[in-house]
Design a protein around this nucleic acid. Structure first.
Length: 345
RNA sequence: UGGGGUGUAGCCAAGUGGUAAGGCAACGGGUUUUGGUCCCGUCAUUCGGAGGUUCGAAUCCUUCCACCCCAG
């Protein structure tokens, strides 16, 4: 009955709040600050307070920056130190938005949490809840929600499921509302200037130093500045003049060597996925599923095999390999999220 | 020191008299709630230096310089 709306400051969650309010759900806005207190955060809260007053909706601000640090930032840093390429947004959705924030909402007597995600939730389907791609395929964010547990998704709500991005702004304008933050949320929210390498260097963690860049024959082509600064499939930043573009093919953490090669060598036939979050029990998955390993990537057909706690995924066609640490999401033909997990080596 | 070769942007490189291709790298921008990818744009008034021939030279001539290879 009572529902919390996770209000970030952006346009999407604001419209989600408006919609629930207008539909008579009597929502309560909950804003969680992920970062340590700052003047910027204070201003944001003032803005949100003003907007909520204008709407006539109560606002609660909760400080989750300690939890965010332990559950998102530190795993992010540790993953990079181990040579992985983490996806903090996916874990944030699981652990913070539909973890800590959901708990905070429940503590306030609210039983559900709505967000501004572009994804659809169907409760009337086999083994509910059914998480589906958003109506706006260009803005679909189901990818980032694939790690959220079934129990938590039962308590979720995505009011923008049927919406398209361009309508959101005009609808807000029609209501005389302006998002508190003008910029869309993009890039890693806890990293200034979008410079994750500098951020890592400032952390209390040991990272590998410079080393050789070699081709698949072992010829030394250049130097790298620490393997954490590179990810599988990366092209830019290698600084190697060659007859054709070179991409990162492998990170050898033991030898501290970066292996590069031309684009045609960047092809994979399979991958291993662990830490599976199954939204549909794996035995109930269709024989042929669609795997997506990046937010903006067309999913490709594949078959899966259960290997203990992992899934072996076999692609029908060659696809670019996904870096270990990234999130693989499995879809059905109809765009239902069957589950997600973390890419292993 | 003889003999041969080469010198075009950060790297590779086309261009042999008609007014400097292309690739890579780099940089800038676009797309994007991760990292990346991808797309678009910018990037030599100048061809090792100096003279000369010519209406006109990176391209021909002279000379100097640098580097490489083979002889010694």
């Amino acid at each position: 009955m009572s529902i919390a709306v996770a209000l970030s400051g952006g346009a999407d969650s604001l419209l989600a709040l408006c919609l629930l309010h207008e539909q008579g759900h009597g929502p309560v806005a909950v804003h969680a600050s992920f970062l340590a207190p700052s003047a910027r955060e204070d201003r944001l809260q003032e803005e949100l307070s003003r907007v909520c007053t204008q709407l006539g909706v109560p606002l609660h601000c909760v400080d989750v920056h300690q939890e965010f640090k332990h559950l998102v930032i530190q795993p992010f840093v540790q993953a990079y130190a181990r040579g992985l390429t983490p996806n903090p947004c996916s874990w944030c959705n699981r652990r913070i938005k539909f973890g800590i924030m959901l708990q905070a909402a429940e503590a306030l007597g609210l039983s559900r949490v709505a967000t501004g995600h572009y994804a659809q939730l169907h409760r009337d389907c086999p083994s509910p809840p059914g998480l589906f791609r958003g109506q706006d395929r260009n803005k679909d964010q189901s990818y980032f929600l694939a790690l959220v547990g079934r129990e938590e998704l039962q308590k979720a709500d995505f009011p923008l499921a049927q919406w398209t991005k361009d309508r959101v702004r005009s609808e807000l304008a029609a209501r005389g509302l302006q998002p508190a933050t003008s910029r869309e949320s993009q890039e890693i929210c806890f990293i200034p200037d979008n410079d994750y390498r500098s951020f890592l260097a400032a952390q209390d963690v040991s990272l590998s130093g410079p080393g050789d860049i070699v081709d698949t024959d072992g010829r030394i082509l250049g130097r790298h500045q620490g393997l954490h600064g590179y990810t599988l499939g990366q092209r830019r930043g290698l600084g190697i003049a060659h007859s054709e573009p070179l991409y990162v093919l492998d990170k050898d953490m033991d030898e501290n060597v970066l292996v590069v090669g031309p684009g045609w060598q960047l092809q994979a036939t399979s991958c291993r996925v662990g830490r599976i979050n199954a939204l549909v029990e794996v035995p109930d998955w269709p024989e042929r599923i669609w795997i997506q390993t990046n937010y903006r990537q067309t999913a490709g057909p594949a078959r899966v095999q259960v290997w203990g706690k992992e899934l072996g995924v076999f692609f029908e066609q060659l696809r670019p390999p996904a870096p270990p640490g990234q999130i693989a999401v499995f879809y059905s033909d109809s765009g239902r999220v069957l589950g997600g997990g973390e890419i292993h080596a």
